[in-house]
């Protein structure tokens, strides 16, 4: 993306925004799900499914916006599996999430074969159009805006929406109550299961969007392994951000910056092996977690199945 005509700072900033976007979507999904008390390790798998179906929707209809819809619906469906497993069937939520991740990987490579008749990656499809030329004409910030895509704007708007819903609406209060003390919430007539189903499925919608960002936002195809741990980095961002929408977003930007760092290195010709830059975001995630866990607190009932009628 970074061509010679734009300054390094702009390229770096724009790359950070682009790379942060999928993380923000998935981290917001994590915040919603875990605030209601369901751990969702399956975000990674849901992103994979979302990324694939975004491409499939776009290739079916030639319209990338339909692809976006496909990503959202498929993400919600896979999340629904996790919801049934962890809410009604009281599965170990980590095991269920891992199962979702394995399932997503297997399902998408099967579908690539079945629907595209190929292996490893799909055909190129229509990506979400973005008016690069028009954006570039905007004074001052034009060169920066030209380097973005619509997903970046969507993610940033959704951060505010999620924050507003969580903290300023009755629904948000209920979600937080269910995640902190489901029994008390139940006593007050809140349907714990219903709220949890809603939140887990919403987390699937968000993670699906995150996946679509990778496939039809920055590229125009789906490739096996393209999500490469971003769902897990998003989870770390959520923890790092103290289970809050703004905190998780800030952490996503930090991790994205670590990924974008490679651009700087290339510009200045620093003689570190590529693998070092590739590993950097993962190392940073660990360091951030080690430095901040204990200073952040998860919702009290996070990961604990609720058993109605049990004392």
């Amino acid at each position: 993306m970074a061509n010679g005509s734009i300054p390094v700072v702009v390229a770096l900033l724009a790359a950070t925004f682009r790379l942060a976007t999928p993380l923000i979507f998935a981290a917001l999904g994590g915040v919603i799900s875990e605030r209601s008390g369901v751990v969702n390790i399956g975000l990674e798998g849901i992103m994979i499914v979302g990324a694939f179906f975004a491409v499939y929707g776009s290739s079916l209809t030639g319209n990338p916006w339909v692809g976006l819809l496909f990503a959202v619906v498929s993400g919600a469906l896979v999340a629904a599996i996790h919801a049934v497993l962890s809410i009604h069937l009281k599965a170990d939520q980590t095991v269920s999430g891992v199962a979702i991740n394995l399932f997503a990987g297997a399902l998408t490579s099967f579908l690539i074969f079945k629907l595209f008749g190929r292996q490893g990656q799909t055909d190129g499809v229509a990506a979400l159009p973005y008016p690069t030329e028009t954006m570039a004409k905007i004074p001052v910030i034009g060169p920066f805006l030209a380097e973005l895509n619509w997903f970046v704007f969507m993610a940033i708007i959704l951060v505010f929406v999620v924050h507003y819903v969580l903290y300023y609406t009755p629904l948000g209060l209920r979600i937080r109550a269910v995640g902190e003390h489901p029994k008390a919430a139940d006593t007050l007539g809140i349907n714990v299961y219903k709220i949890r189903y809603l939140c887990v499925i919403m987390s699937g919608v968000f993670a699906g969007l995150g996946g679509a960002t990778l496939s039809i936002g920055v590229m125009n195809l789906f490739r096996e392994g393209m999500v490469s741990g971003r769902g897990f980095i998003a989870l770390a961002a959520m923890i790092f951000g103290n289970w809050k929408p703004f905190g998780a977003t800030a952490a996503s930007f930090l991790f994205a910056f670590a990924q974008a760092f490679e651009i700087l290195a290339q510009k200045f010709g620093w003689a570190l092996p590529t693998e070092a830059y590739l590993a950097f975001p993962y190392i940073l995630t660990m360091l951030a977690l080690a430095g901040f866990v204990g200073k952040t607190t998860p919702p009290a009932a996070d990961g604990v199945p609720y058993n109605k009628g049990e004392r």
Partner: peptide
């Protein structure tokens, strides 16, 4: 038969193992 069916089988087994509450 796409070889991914093997991994699908494995993943579905784990989903049902996770659901042992049934």
């Amino acid at each position: 038969i796409p070889k991914d069916i093997v991994y699908l089988i494995q993943a579905i087994i784990i989903i049902f193992v996770a659901a042992d509450y049934i």
